[in-house]
């Protein structure tokens, strides 16, 4: 396996946790949550600080998840209790978190995790050996959760809020829970990226929401999303495919590393525009065909239908 492909699998697996988080808000809750761009960094920063302090890397991962979940919960509270527009509450939280992330990092824009005495979760086990287990475990746990009574009410909150409220669910709470869970996963992903790449940086989360969306959309387009089980699988695979596409782009001679964000945006735009154009084109074609059929049939049989 070429080195770049190896790297694509590593990154794809780690970022898939972030993509699963984006899937929860974007697809299940139908809530476009921009907190992600900053909570990713929060996770990385928390883990980096704890690990350099000698805390177990697993505990650091858990703490990162918790920190992300708290950030998400606050976004949820701003949106539901404060009645702030969904996009805006995410943006507000993102801006606020920038300062908090800077505080966590101790006022420095980045922290290195390269030293010989630094122990990360990847110190004893390679990324490609460890991550498949972590990702599958989290995917299965999510699948199971979304089949419980609580998970069902969370899905229904995004599907038909009025209905699930009429059956006694406080949809404010399910939204807050969903956004918290989502950002917990995003922060966990951030903490693992910090450990894999050897540093946590204040700007490492920029554009994360779009990368998450790209993974979700690519995954669903290629692998389908008929059930939650299929959808979460599609999101994980989509994250890997996305990294392979980016890797291929890097392989070409005329693209620079800084073009990555443009490529990502283009992928998302194509993935969003193409299916809807395809649908309306198909519909038009069908309508034309059926009209011709009905009119033709009319002429011959005098209105059979």
């Amino acid at each position: 396996m070429p080195v770049w492909l190896n790297g694509a699998f590593e990154l794809g697996l780690i970022y898939s946790l972030m993509a699963l988080g984006v899937y929860i808000t974007f697809r299940i809750l139908d809530f476009p949550d921009l907190t992600v761009d900053a909570s990713f960094t929060t996770g990385a920063a928390v883990a980096a600080v704890l690990i350099t302090d000698g805390v177990s890397p697993w505990v650091a991962c858990l703490a990162a998840f918790g920190a992300g979940a708290i950030a998400g919960a606050i976004t949820g509270i701003l949106h539901t209790k404060g009645k702030i527009n969904g996009l805006l509450s995410g943006i507000l939280m993102m801006i606020a978190l920038y300062s908090i992330n800077m505080r966590i990092l101790g006022g420095k824009p980045n922290i290195g995790l390269m030293g010989a005495d630094i122990v990360t979760v990847f110190s004893s086990m390679k990324v490609l050996l460890l991550m498949p287990f972590v990702v599958i475990a989290i995917k299965v746990l999510l699948d199971l959760f979304f089949r419980t009574d609580l998970g069902l009410s969370l899905r229904a909150t995004g599907d038909n809020e009025r209905m699930i409220r009429s059956f006694g669910t406080n949809t404010d709470n399910t939204k807050i829970l969903g956004i918290a869970l989502s950002n917990g996963l995003v922060a966990l992903s951030g903490s693992l990226i910090a450990q894999q790449s050897g540093f946590a940086d204040i700007s490492m989360g920029v554009g994360m929401i779009v990368i998450g969306l790209a993974s979700v959309i690519i995954g669903e387009a290629i692998f389908g999303a008929k059930s939650v089980f299929r959808a979460t699988l599609a999101v994980v695979l989509g994250s890997i495919v996305y990294r392979i596409i980016i890797g291929l782009a890097y392989q070409s001679d005329f693209l620079e590393a800084s073009d990555l964000k443009l490529i990502t945006a283009v992928i998302v735009i194509v993935a969003l525009v193409f299916p809807s154009m395809q649908k309306s084109w198909k519909q038009k074609n069908l309508a034309r065909k059926r009209t011709a059929q009905i009119l033709g049939g009319n002429g011959q049989k005098g209105g059979g239908r």
Binding site: F145, R147, T148, D149, L150, L152, F167, G168, T169
Partner: peptide
Amino acid sequence: RGQQRGFSFS
């Protein structure tokens, strides 16, 4: 309806 929704399978 109207009950606490927990972690039991739906």
